[in-house]
Design a protein around this nucleic acid. Structure first.
Lengths: 332, 332
DNA sequence: CGCCAACATGTTAGCGCTTTCATTTTGCCG
DNA sequence: CGGCAAAATGAAAGCGCTAACATGTTGGCG
């Protein structure tokens, strides 16, 4: 590995470089005897093509980048797993960058990745800096924005409507007769998904002619502890509260635990609904009512779209809605 | 981006390519007036170096690969976050591959990554195919095996002893007076960590002169559901059982829930100890006694070691033990 | 048995950068 | 103010591959 070059193989086999290339990529175009000879040298030398040189000559790196907020979010990780699973069979590899929820950091990463002449890119969410968008358009590579749907994608988009999904969950609580319904969600800065979920919550309340009470809404970070603290805050406000929509299951589970610790019965005193259907949601007692989203499919579809475009296949629809479904359980 | 070449910038600024390169990388070696002129052209054209061409010419890709079993394991994701955080400031980027717990698939990925002329690589665990090891040694790049400690690393190694860690947890149960102590762990195929943890469990029992009863040991997959089912299996065997060591918190939490559902009091009737200290371990009721490992630090340290080596800095010790600590909570 | 497809193979010219060495210019001192 | 070291700049030769075109070699048929 590493040492032998194409030309080494060629001269060892007594042929030209092109013949080796053909033996590698279009064996049927090479005479059987030649093929066998080249094949043998290939095996002996353990030749591995230098993809850097190939990239320079062919102007394709074979690299697909993905910029995600953090690697440690298991929901995003599922999308990435789908993405890489779709990419690798076509010979592409995944270049991963973490932006830490910062659009500026995302821009820095995108710039660096374009320097590497990536063939395509996956971005999380639909909100990016103007410069990010400009660079990507100028690069004219396949771009998929994933995890949310919006009106004007840079190029392609696959996900679901966070507004509609959050509205569905909230409507579910409304129809179950709960009122008033509070909200615990993630901080919305630099994060269109969080913002959209809150928006969906508000739309559902408005449709039901319930008023949005700011005192019943808390925004916090996205983990179990934070969910527990937020629930404590809400309960501490001594306002009437019958149900809470948590814009992420991690938060919902934390809220549930906080209720347990305080002896608040769920759903009898306070109903809780989450969002995401993480594995633990089905296991907690009471099990968490939530909304399921097809995360792996999002990544996989995104990967397919990028591969299709790079292979010159037409994309039927640049915006793919992967949908969602309510999962009614015991907590609401 | 993408259009302007180094030579374009050079001719626009009326200098040679080399001067532009120096302006970019060693500005102090360029006369102030020239520097300003080049700088202006650089800004105007928005020049971005083509890292593929650089890679070919300099024989360094700037890419560090990591091969992990799956992206969706949040523990591994934390390691990856540490890794990328350590790499990016030095200008390296993370190329990620998922082997699906298969050593053969790992080998395929390593081969492909070597084709891309990666500058370094992180591998999960200490067990790899002979061919993987051979290729890596031949490539002579920094290699870090992470997440476990073993005797003969390919190159460098950072992690903790899964044997010792599992022994610590089991010993904790022994000292608390529980007996007999059962075991629920992950399938050990192609996974040295799982194997080592079971080994640690057995060593601790042996040290305490308790016998290892195969009927009290279950191996399963690594998630909450599986943990619950495994606990059900164990309870269904109608053997005396006082405590269970679960080789992963996901399994432990599942086991805990199964006990709750069956009305088995934890820790009064059965004590449960986990491994990993995932976020939810502190939140479940009763909170899970477990063992904490410095995952982010493992990735970060691995990244630093790779960067150090590539920068020509000496590595004091090629094997770094990041240690572990018992976290005593309520479940055992 | 000669000729032309169809097949098989080779040649040439880069891709955009870095590396190495060569050359020119400047500054300083006796 | 000549000469030399140091500073500033440039020229040439690839890195290992691919793309596009060119050439050579068969075999089948009239």
């Amino acid at each position: 590995m590493g040492r032998a070059r194409l030309s080494d193989v060629a001269s060892a086999a007594g042929v030209s470089a092109m013949t080796v290339v053909r033996a590698l990529r279009e064996p049927h175009k090479v005479a059987a005897a030649t093929l066998a000879r080249v094949q043998r040298v290939l095996d002996e030398t353990g030749y591995t093509p230098n993809l850097i040189a190939r990239g320079l000559a062919s102007n394709r790196s074979g690299l697909i980048a993905a910029v995600i907020p953090v690697l440690t979010n298991s929901l995003i990780a599922e999308i990435m797993q789908g993405l890489t699973d779709a990419l690798v069979p076509s010979g592409y590899h995944l270049l991963l960058g973490a932006s830490g929820f910062s659009a500026a950091e995302e821009e820095t990463l995108v710039r660096a990745f374009l320097s590497r002449r990536i063939d395509g890119i996956y971005l999380t969410g639909a909100v990016h800096t103007a410069e990010t968008v400009r660079m990507l358009q100028r690069a004219a590579i396949p771009v998929v924005e994933g995890g949310n749907l919006a009106d004007r994608p840079i190029d392609m988009m696959v996900g679901y409507s966070n507004v509609d999904a959050a509205r569905s969950v909230t409507r579910y609580l409304v129809k179950a007769g709960y009122a008033p319904i509070g909200y615990i969600g993630a901080y919305p800065q630099d994060n269109d998904r969080a913002r959209d979920r809150r928006h969906g919550y508000e739309l559902a309340l408005a449709a039901a002619r319930q008023r949005v009470d700011p005192a019943l809404c808390v925004e916090t970070s996205l983990d179990i502890d934070a969910g527990a603290r937020a629930m404590a805050t809400l309960l501490g406000r001594k306002r009437k509260l019958r149900a809470v929509f948590c814009s992420a299951d991690a938060i919902g589970v934390g809220a549930l635990y906080e209720c347990q610790r305080r002896g608040v019965a769920v759903p009898e005193e306070i109903a809780i609904a989450g969002f995401d259907d993480i594995p633990i949601a089905a296991q907690v007692v009471p099990s968490l009512t939530t909304l399921r989203v097809r995360r792996y499919a999002i990544g996989q579809r995104a990967g397919e779209m990028i591969c299709d475009r790079l292979a010159g296949r037409a994309i039927k629809d640049p915006i793919v809605d992967t949908g969602f479904e309510m999962v009614a359980r015991d907590s609401a």
